[in-house]
Design a protein around this nucleic acid. Structure first.
Length: 358
DNA sequence: AATACGTGGAC
DNA sequence: TGTCCAAGTAT
């Protein structure tokens, strides 16, 4: 049996670590728009946006979002197209829908008053173990460690934790370890300090370990093995899938498809996309008529241009097919003119295709 | 437990 | 270009 072990700190070391970390944080914390106060709505919006998304990307979206929806009541009442207008381009679009569902829960179930514990917050849509602890600690001072990618990396390096962070079980181990280390007097600042540390001196690539304010506590740093941490099994590369995107001309513009309510790029209006493996070149007209009640003419497969769009788990390799619309009878398809094609709420992929055709 | 779910930046 | 990363959650 393999025994996986890690460095354990004495109570004294833990106290010194807290003091060192928070002293550094007080003098060097990043000036971010969501750090101007600890309003739970502000913390909530920023934490949802920051899921799997870099700080630099989030800043502009956050400012626009708070301007458009200043309170949880505004968000709860927002029309979906206005919500998506602000979110478009940020990715992971179910976050936006779940966020509004959570806002409705706050308004309807809690009369606008946020619950103050991680346990209650985790019951809200889109709020999981990390986000619930982040909001509870930052907005309400609950002593809960927020275990995100930064916390995994920072504590794996400091304590030489060998467990694979890709495994769900490992999150519990880190939670229990950090629960003993987190500062009970300043839990929100402690969590945010770990994140600032993890995105600067202890970032994943090109860290500056020797200059780190907590170098004296850094076991892997001192022995020069910090790049071995955290231990994480590799994900399999995205599956390559060839697609056709259909640029269907109508007398006044283009024919677009409203995508299904579930799955990738749900609800977005886009050029119809069909896997090449689902249709032979010669059978495209029949395919559209049989599956969509859309009649096409003047099919022209264009192999000269290719758009590649990589998602987390799929890479779409897209060629265009140009065609003219004869008629259609399908509520999931809509005609848009040239102007509307650029004004709709669009995914990054559709914008990429628009730019290539422009 | 394993997979679906976006995007843009860094090297 | 390929690969990995960035404040995860839902199923």
């Amino acid at each position: 049996m393999i025994v996986i072990s890690y460095i354990e700190w004495s109570d004294d070391t833990i106290k010194q670590f807290r003091r060192t970390l928070l002293t550094w944080y007080d003098e060097n914390k990043r000036d971010l728009p969501w750090r101007k106060d600890t309003d739970p709505y502000h913390v909530f919006i920023s934490e949802i946006m920051l899921q799997q998304t870099q700080v630099n990307t989030v800043i502009d979206y956050y400012l626009k979002f708070i301007e458009a929806f200043p309170t949880v009541f505004d968000l709860a009442q927002a029309p979906e197209d206005e919500l998506m207008a602000v979110w478009q381009g940020l990715g992971y679009y179910s976050r936006a829908r779940n966020m509004q569902a959570a806002a409705k829960q706050i308004v309807l179930d809690y009369e606008g008053h946020w619950p103050k514990t991680a346990k209650e917050l985790e019951q809200l849509k889109g709020i999981g173990p990390y986000t619930s602890c982040a909001i509870a600690s930052i907005a309400f001072g609950e002593v809960e460690p927020a275990i995100d990618g930064n916390a995994f990396r920072v504590f794996a390096r400091l304590l030489k934790i060998e467990d694979d962070i890709a495994k769900p079980k490992t999150k519990t181990l880190f939670y229990n370890i950090v629960k003993k280390i987190i500062d009970p007097d300043r839990p929100g600042d402690f969590n945010q300090a770990i994140m600032d540390l993890g995105s600067s001196y202890m970032k994943a690539k090109n860290p500056i370990i020797e200059q780190s304010p907590v170098y004296e506590f850094d076991a892997s740093g001192q022995e020069g093995t910090y790049l071995d941490y955290p231990v994480k099994t590799k994900k399999k590369p995205p599956q390559k899938i060839p697609y056709y995107a259909f640029v269907i001309k109508t007398p006044t513009g283009y024919l677009l498809e409203k995508r299904p309510q579930t799955g990738i790029l749900a609800n977005f209006t886009m050029f119809p996309l069909i896997k090449k493996s689902d249709v032979e070149k010669e059978a495209i007209v029949d395919y559209f008529k049989a599956n969509y009640s859309v009649e096409l003419a003047h099919i022209e497969v264009d192999d000269s241009q290719k758009v590649t769009h990589t998602f987390t788990h799929q890479q779409w390799q897209i060629n265009f097919v140009k065609a003219d619309l004869v008629r259609f009878n399908n509520a999931n398809f809509i005609e848009v003119n040239e102007k509307e094609l650029y004004q709709l709420n669009l995914s990054a992929l559709q914008k990429k295709m628009n730019n290539i055709l422009a």
